[in-house]
Write a protein that binds this DNA or RNA. Sequence first.
DNA 1: CCAAAAGTGTTGAGTATACACCCATGA
DNA 2: TCATGGGTGTATACTCAACACTTTTGG
Lengths: 242, 242
Amino acid sequence: MPPVAEGDNRRASPTTRRAGARRAGAVYTPRVAVDVVLFAFHEATLKAFLVEPAGGPGGGCWAFPGGLMRVGETLDQAARRELRASTGLRDAYLEQLFTFGDPTRDPAGHVVSVVYLALTAAAEVAGAACAKYRQGRWYGVSELPRLAYDHERVAQVALERLRGKLEYTNVACNLLPDGFTFAELERLYAAVLGRKLDRRNFRRRLMASGLLRRLPATRRGRHRPAALYAFSERTPRVIALL
Amino acid sequence: MPPVAEGDNRRASPTTRRAGARRAGAVYTPRVAVDVVLFAFHEATLKAFLVEPAGGPGGGCWAFPGGLMRVGETLDQAARRELRASTGLRDAYLEQLFTFGDPTRDPAGHVVSVVYLALTAAAEVAGAACAKYRQGRWYGVSELPRLAYDHERVAQVALERLRGKLEYTNVACNLLPDGFTFAELERLYAAVLGRKLDRRNFRRRLMASGLLRRLPATRRGRHRPAALYAFSERTPRVIALL
DNA sequence: CCAAAAGTGTTGAGTATACACCCATGA
DNA sequence: TCATGGGTGTATACTCAACACTTTTGG
């Protein structure tokens, strides 16, 4: 396999990359956007936050919130900015998910989109009012409407990632507020993973993980009161759970 | 947490994103580059391919090959193009790794870099001659020189990903040519993971995985001949191995 | 007292790990 | 014949999955 000198090489070397900085905009490269897939667990269902782009040719389509990145900010900052602009949320778990760059994904031009996965325990707060879009609302992940751009695929990738991470990390702590019952935690896992879990085995393992802290209070309802728990820390941790 | 209308919103909505397409270059967004971290297993060592950017202010620093993305191509295409331009390799395993977007990562301007992980079994071929850079060569991953940009971090992330994937996928098939011995395969795993493996247990598990196909030939050396194997398929597969 | 959800242990099967000796060859 | 790396099996500890009844409360 002999080395091949391609016409390709002219503009793309690191040297050119740097020289090009002086004439920003003159270099013919796609633009960068950041999109955010925000999940919350609410009413025993995993929900995703969608916005309806104001008047865009999305034609009544929904999409995950996002927008162009700016020069001088980090990707994380851009994601946090977009999250806040579309939902009002100031804090949420954020993790880079994947970058989509197909030139046809946005019919109006080549935009590379760095997609973030976001989790919140405050579903009611988010999207109560949305300054940036015509409207924003929560959809159960199994009842998503038609999505614009390549966001069907984005949704799929985000869900896969969340499912994977539930089993071997403590991400779940970002989907529940302090003071949840074991039953709620189990319903969260069952809803996201799409399968039933054995109550006793589930409880044993999460207890053994040491991630949970028992609160003094109990939740009282129509039936036997349930002990309340909180995650003892919310720093991301890799740990086999299931 | 009341919704906050930020000055942020003006330019970043999907609407603006599309409208902006007509005046490409006028929108103030970082440029997009694709970098490729190519690994090979050679002489019982995991090696990475580095290039010395021609005359750039890298100042004798090495870096992973890469360059600006072009409008109209996919990320995968860009990665394949860069790989070929810097190493001559036409085919290699390629997987998107992570996107780095810190505005200070390239001192000459804000460039968002989508980094790909690449694997090849043809270490000798790659970089035999390199059209695009002053020079390109292999470095053992434990003896990397100082790297330009944020490529120290990039190297770290790439290695972590490779380590992780060795244990639960068949990626290793992309690092060995057909006709390897079990000892070679085990050395590959030991070198990448940085720990010794039990020969019998290792062999049992890989046999049980069904990923390997025994070749009729044997490798003859100074000692007892060793049976040769190949991976029965190279399509990516998720499977617990260790 | 009844309905509904909370809480609790054991057993059997399968899997993971640790470990040591013989084999085939070229020099 | 010897040095070198190739090749093989078993016993034990542990981990995982399946499984059902009692408790507590509100209505």
